[in-house]
Design a protein around this nucleic acid. Structure first.
Length: 649
RNA sequence: GGGCGCGUAGCUCAGUUGGAUAGAGCAUCAGCCUUCUAAGCUGAGGGUCGCAGGUUCGAUCCCUGCCGCGCCUACCA
C-alpha cells in the first residue's frame, strides 16, 4: 500500500503542477529523515529554485496552494528551508490496509532467466558456492514475488578441466576401475572424497609437470568419445551433481533445468554459434604473434575502443585454441545465445532421476519432450566478480552479432568472493602461511582443498541450533527439535550470505556465522514465531476486518493518533516498497535488511503493547489486527528470502 | 602498466542513485524476566565518512589528483 502511494502521489502532484503552474518537472519523493515530518518529503522546491531564481521556501508556498488537496492526504506542509512534507490520512490508510483493493494483474513481461550455482561437478560445494546459490535463489524468489515469470538454470560444466582432473586422479593416481569408482560414487560423501582427490591431483601436477599430458588426454576423451574414460567422467560428474543438488535442497534451493556442457558439444551449439560469429566477422583467425592459429575476439569488441589501438600488447581474447578446441567462453557465448532464443537450436530434456521437477538436458530426442526452456527476455548470470572480464566477452559476442537489445538485458549479477578470516582457518585447522595470518582474510582454494564445505557448515549450524533448542524446549520431541534446529540453521546461513551487499568481500568468520542474536536470520524468525504465538493464544476468533464498515474503521483509526502505533503500522506496510527497491538495485541485501527492521519493529510493538490483556476494546481491535498484519508480513518477507518459519523457538 | 572494486564507530557492515541531526549489529558499560517466549528490550560511551582540491543552495554520494588494499588482466574457468 505504501508503495502504491509512493508512486501515485508524486505523479498526481506533477500533474497538478503542470496543469496549474505549467511546471513540468519530475517530482522526486523521499522519506523524511525524522518521521515526525510526515510520510513523504518532496524536495521539488530545491530543484526549481535555480530556474525560477527564487528562494525554495517561497516556491514551496506557491506549490502548496497550486496543488490543493490530495486524496488520502491529510496535510501538505512546508518545512525546513523548502521541503514539502506529505502527511497521510491515517484512517484512509488503515482502511486500505485492512481492506486492500483487488490487485491489478501486472503487465505481462517476458520470461526472466536466472543462472546460478553452476559449480564444477568435481568436488563438494563450499561457502563461496553457497553465496552464489543463495543470492541467485533469493533474487529469483524476489522476482517471482513481484509477479515475474522466472526460470532458474544451473549450468553443469561436466566436460571441463576440473572434472578431467578428478578422472585423472582416479585413473592414474589411484588406478581405480570404472566399477570401483561406481561403487564409491553411490557411497555417502562421494563429493568429499573427490574434494581430497582433486587437491591431490593438483599437487601432483605441480610436482610432475609432465603429468599434465594426462589431463589433455582425459579431456579429449571426455569431450569426444564414449570410451571408458568418458564414461568415468560422466559417472563422476553426474554423481557430484546429485551431491550438489542435495546440499542445495537442504537450503530450499531448487532448479527448473540443468543445461549441460556435454549437450552444448554434442548438439553442435558451438558449431552453430561459431558459424554466426564468423559470418559477422566478430572473430578472426590470428596469423601471427602469441595467438597465431587461434580464432580470437579483438579487444576493441569488449574493451574501451579508444585505448586498444594505442597499445601494442595483444589483449584480444582467444575463443578457439590453435588445436581447434573451443574455450569455455566460446561455449558460454553459444549458451547465452540459446538463453535468449537466438541460437536456432534447442536441447532435448528429460526428468532428472531422483529430483522431481528438475529437468536435465540430453542429446537424445525425447518422445514427449515439450518442455520449453530458454528464450528469455532478460538473463541474469550469477557469477563471481572475478569473471567480469569473461562476462564482458560474452556480451560483446551478442553485440557483435547485432543483438544489442539482448546484450543490454544480459546482466552479470556479480558478487565478491567469500574468504576466510585467519581465526576461522585456525579453528578449522586449515594450514595458512605466516603472511596470510596477518591479512584480514584468506582466499579459499578448491585446487588446494582449502575451504569450508557447505554440508559441514550446515551440520555445524544445526548442531549449534540444536543445543539452543534443547536448552529452551526440553519437552519437545527429538524429531521436532531436530526440525526446528534445521530451520534455524537455514535462516542463519541464508541471512548471513544475504546481509552483505554483493560487492563486499565476505570475510567468513565461523563464530559470527554461528551467532543467532542481533542482525541474524533467527532473530527475524523469532519475531515471526512470537507474533504467531499471540494469535495462537487468542481464545476468541480473529475479527473479520474485511467486513468492517467505514465508520468502524474510522473509530479504530482514532487509536493511530498514538504516534508509535502509527509509525509501526507504516513500517509494516513498506514490504512491497522494500521489495521493489531491492529488485531495482539488484541487492537482495536491501530486502534482508528490511526483514530485520520489520522484526525490530515487531519487537518494539511486542514490548510496548500487550495485546491479549488490552482492556480498551477499540484499541484491542487495532492491536489484534496489527499483530496479524505483522505476522503475515514477516512470513511473506521470510518466504521471499527462502527462510522457513519454525512452529516454535 | 591497464581494467574493475573497496576505504564510514574498537570490529563487521548499511547508507533508498545529491538532501533535514551519518545508521545497524557485534564488542564494552549500566539496567529490565510473577506480565503474549530474555534467540528479546531500554539506555550510555564510541565518527576528520582515507587525504587534498573541484562542481552547487546543499557532497559519505558526482569530478580530478594522491595514499592504502583487493580482484582481474591464460591457447584455466
Amino acid at each position: 500500500m505504501f508503495h502504491q502511494l509512493e508512486k501515485s502521489i508524486p505523479l498526481e502532484i506533477a500533474a497538478r503542477l503542470s496543469q496549474q503552474l505549467q511546471i513540468d518537472a519530475p517530482v522526486q519523493v523521499e522519506q523524511p529523515r525524522d518521521p515526525k515530518f510526515g510520510e513523504f518529503a518532496l524536495p521539488i522546491a530545491f530543484q526549481l529554485a535555480r530556474q525560477m531564481k527564487q528562494a525554495p521556501k517561497a516556491i514551496a508556498e506557491k506549490l502548496v496552494s497550486a496543488i490543493g488537496t490530495l486524496p488520502g492526504v491529510a496535510a501538505l506542509e512546508i518545512a525546513g528551508n523548502g521541503y514539502l512534507n506529505v502527511r497521510l490520512d491515517r484512517a484512509r490508510y488503515l482502511a486500505s490496509l485492512m481492506q486492500p483493493p483487488a490487485e491489478a494483474a501486472g503487465a505481462e513481461s517476458g520470461k526472466v532467466i536466472i543462472e546460478h550455482t553452476n559449480i564444477n561437478p568435481n568436488k563438494a560445494a563450499h561457502i563461496g558456492h553457497l553465496r552464489n546459490a543463495i543470492l541467485g535463489d533469493t533474487f529469483a524468489r524476489m522476482l517471482r514475488a513481484s509477479g515475474e515469470t522466472v526460470e532458474v538454470q544451473n549450468y553443469i560444466d561436466n566436460t571441463g578441466v576440473q572434472v578431467a582432473d578428478v578422472v585423472v586422479g582416479f585413473r592414474y593416481l589411484e588406478k581405480k576401475s570404472l566399477a570401483e569408482v561406481e561403487a564409491l560414487s553411490v557411497a555417502p560423501r562421494f563429493d568429499y572424497y573427490c574434494w581430497d582427490l582433486y587437491a591431490r591431483t593438483s599437487t601432483y601436477y605441480k610436482d610432475h609437470p609432465d603429468s599434465l599430458a594426462w589431463r589433455a588426454e582425459v579431456l579429449h576423451s571426455i569431450e569426444g568419445g564414449t570410451d571408458e574414460v568418458s564414461r568415468l567422467g560422466h559417472l563422476v560428474a553426474d554423481a557430484i551433481v546429485g551431491c550438489h543438488l542435495r546440499t542445495m535442497a537442504r537450503l530450499g534451493i531448487v532448479y527448473d533445468v540443468l543445461p549441460r556442457e556435454s549437450e552444448i558439444l554434442h548438439l553442435q551449439f558451438w558449431a552453430k554459434a561459431f558459424e554466426l560469429l564468423k559470418e559477422r566477422k566478430a572473430l578472426f583467425l590470428e596469423t601471427e604473434g602469441k595467438n597465431k592459429g587461434c580464432w580470437v575476439m579483438p579487444a576493441s569488441a569488449f574493451r574501451d575502443a579508444t585505448r586498444a589501438e594505442e597499445e601494442d600488447v595483444d589483449d584480444s581474447k582467444v575463443i578457439v585454441r590453435s588445436n581447434g578446441i573451443v574455450t569455455y567462453v566460446g561455449k558460454d557465448i553459444a549458451y547465452q545465445l540459446w538463453k535468449f532464443g537466438l541460437l536456432g537450436k534447442d536441447f532435448f530434456y528429460e526428468p532428472l532421476a531422483g529430483f522431481p521437477g528438475v529437468m536435465v538436458s540430453t542429446a537424445e530426442p525425447q518422445p514427449a519432450s515439450n518442455s520449453r526452456f530458454g528464450g528469455g527476455q532478460t538473463v541474469y548470470n550469477v557469477i563471481d566478480s572475478r569473471q567480469s572480464y569473461l562476462q564482458d566477452v560474452v556480451v560483446a559476442g551478442l553485440r557483435a552479432l547485432g543483438y544489442h537489445e539482448q546484450a543490454a538485458k544480459s546482466v552479470h549479477f556479480s558478487y565478491e568472493m567469500v574468504a576466510l578470516t585467519p581465526r576461522t582457518c585456525v579453528d578449522l585447522r586449515i594450514p595458512i602461511s605466516e603472511e596470510d595470518a596477518k591479512k584480514a582474510y584468506v582466499e579459499v582454494s578448491g585446487r588446494k582443498g582449502l575451504g569450508v564445505k557447505a554440508d559441514d557448515l550446515l551440520d555445524e549450524l544445526i548442531a549449534t541450533a540444536g543445543r539452543e533448542v534443547g536448552a529452551r524446549h526440553a519437552e519437545a520431541t527429538e524429531e521436532d527439535r531436530r526440525m526446528i534446529a534445521t530451520q534455524i540453521a537455514v535462516a542463519a546461513l541464508r541471512y548471513f550470505m544475504l546481509k552483505f551487499t554483493r560487492n563486499t568481500v565476505i570475510a567468513f568468520d565461523l563464530q559470527e556465522a554461528l551467532s543467532f542474536t542481533g542482525e541474524t536470520g533467527p532473530y527475524v524468525q523469532y519475531s515471526a514465531v512470537r507474533a504467531g504465538r499471540i494469535l495462537t493464544k487468542l481464545t476468541e476468533p480473529l475479527p473479520d476486518y474485511r467486513s468492517l464498515s467505514p465508520a468502524e474503521i474510522d473509530d479504530i483509526a482514532a487509536e493511530l493518533a498514538d504516534e508509535n502505533l502509527w509509525q509501526l503500522t507504516l513500517s509494516v506496510s513498506k514490504l512491497e516498497s522494500a521489495l521493489a527497491r531491492s529488485i531495482a538495485s539488484g541487492e537482495p541485501a536491501h530486502l534482508a535488511r528490511f526483514a530485520f527492521q520489520l522484526a525490530q519493529s515487531f519487537s518494539t510493538f511486542y514490548e510496548n503493547y500487550p495485546v491479549l490483556t488490552e482492556k480498551n476494546p477499540r484499541k484491542k481491535l487495532l492491536l489484534l489486527w496489527m499483530t496479524d498484519y505483522f505476522a503475515r508480513q514477516l512470513r511473506r518477507t521470510l518466504d521471499i528470502l527462502g527462510i522457513p518459519v519454525p512452529s516454535f523457538m
